[in-house]
Amino acid sequence: MMVGMALGMLVARITIGHPLAIWFSFLSLTMFHMYANYRAVRCLALNSLNPERSSILLHHFTETGQVLSPKQVSSLEHVLPIQLTPWHSKKANSLDTKVRLGTRISSFDEMEIKEHLLSVASYYTKAKYLLVEKKGIVNVIVHKDSNGADILKSFIHALVLANNAYKSKSLHSDSQTWMENQYEVFIQKVKSLGWKTERLLSSPIIWRANWIHQSATEKND
């Protein structure tokens, strides 16, 4: 701290009265400061699950059957906003950009509700969320009683669905099978490497919905 202040005072004294030197010093030091911050952020290895880290972990797990450590994921995670990331880098792990968490039911019109919502509801009778794929985007409708673990599960399920969007004709059936057979295995492996799996670190979910599942026997009575 003291060294930096001393150098700053020295530079200020040397460049006084020289506008070009002042601007050169300012721009040079600003660029160095930004680079130092970038390198510092790159050194962080956070063990909380956000959308991008979840996407990276799931992508690697589906490819290899293994999960990455927080340090390994840190080297793959974007530091800059996704809009400023090169196209080839975006393409590598961009499943999280295809998931919309906390979608409002009112954002669907009557035809879409019949065509999308009602047709897939049977796949989520035991879940506290609904997944609706629309124009390449997986919309997650969250139940009002869902907790942190439910939201994390819904997001992972949505990533699986997004990953299979162009590979399978029976999206919901195949993704449900994956969740039943692989989700707990995935979560346990993630936990074993120190990841926190209690919740998904995401923006607050403002819109939630309420629905009641009715079994076939109840309908016939």
Rank of each mutant, 00 (worst) to 15 (best):
68 L>E: 02
5 M>L: 11
41 V>F: 15
140 V>N: 04
162 A>G: 07
145 D>K: 14
85 T>Q: 12
196 K>I: 13
120 V>H: 06
195 W>Q: 09
193 L>W: 09
133 E>R: 02
151 I>W: 05
65 G>E: 10
113 I>T: 07
214 Q>A: 08
4 G>C: 08
145 D>W: 05
23 W>N: 08
62 T>E: 13
140 V>Y: 03
15 T>E: 10
207 W>N: 11
92 A>F: 07
42 R>S: 10
78 H>S: 14
73 V>H: 04
119 S>Q: 15
130 L>F: 09
112 E>T: 08
16 I>P: 05
215 S>M: 13
46 L>M: 10
192 S>K: 15
137 I>S: 02
124 Y>V: 05
21 A>T: 08
201 L>Y: 04
135 K>L: 07
19 P>M: 02
94 S>G: 14
138 V>Y: 03
35 Y>W: 13
122 S>C: 12
199 R>P: 00
24 F>L: 04
136 G>M: 03
139 N>E: 15
26 F>K: 08
11 V>I: 11
167 K>R: 15
193 L>F: 10
118 L>H: 14
84 L>R: 07
11 V>R: 03
28 S>Q: 05
22 I>C: 13
74 S>I: 07
122 S>W: 13
30 T>V: 08
25 S>M: 07
143 H>C: 05
108 F>W: 15
122 S>T: 12
112 E>Q: 14
9 M>D: 07
54 S>R: 01
194 G>L: 11
175 S>K: 03
8 G>S: 07
14 I>T: 12
1 M>K: 03
198 E>P: 01
178 W>R: 05
146 S>W: 01
69 S>D: 11
95 L>S: 03
102 G>N: 12
74 S>H: 12
24 F>S: 12
146 S>A: 15
118 L>N: 14
121 A>W: 02
180 E>G: 02
100 R>T: 02
88 H>K: 10
137 I>V: 15
41 V>R: 15
43 C>L: 14
115 E>K: 14
93 N>K: 06
74 S>T: 00
204 P>A: 09
18 H>P: 01
97 T>F: 01
102 G>L: 14
209 A>R: 04
162 A>E: 08
29 L>Y: 06
106 S>Q: 14
12 A>T: 05
59 H>L: 06
129 Y>W: 14
220 N>I: 13
38 Y>N: 03
173 S>N: 11
190 V>Y: 03
69 S>R: 13
31 M>W: 07
219 K>P: 00
47 N>Q: 12
59 H>V: 05
98 K>C: 12
99 V>R: 00
89 S>D: 05
220 N>W: 13
180 E>P: 02
51 P>K: 00
137 I>E: 08
12 A>W: 07
